[in-house]
């Protein structure tokens, strides 16, 4: 695998982890104060989109790695 890909796949779990924790934080805040719209705003919608995309890539990568002959 080329170096940029290696870096990307090394960083991928960390980015996914950070985004997930951010959204969990917004979720908890939203439970207490819905009207501040931490979940229902444009920035968060983009974050959800990015997280979903990264999760798909991470999952596919993980499945492919598991299927690789040892």
């Amino acid at each position: 695998m080329k170096k940029p890909f290696r870096i990307f796949f090394a960083l991928l779990p960390h980015i996914t982890l950070i985004l997930s924790l951010m959204l969990l934080t917004f979720f908890v805040i939203d439970l207490f104060n819905e009207s501040m719209a931490f979940l229902n705003n444009t920035i968060t919608k983009y974050l959800v989109g990015i997280l979903s995309l990264l999760t798909v890539i991470l999952s596919v990568f993980s499945v492919l790695r598991d299927q690789r002959p040892r």
Partner: peptide, 16 residues
């Protein structure tokens, strides 16, 4: 990761 999480939350709060 946790430090980056804190930074990202601050940036989000700044804009939001």
């Amino acid at each position: 990761d946790l430090i980056l999480l804190g930074i990202f939350l601050c940036v989000f709060a700044l804009f939001h």
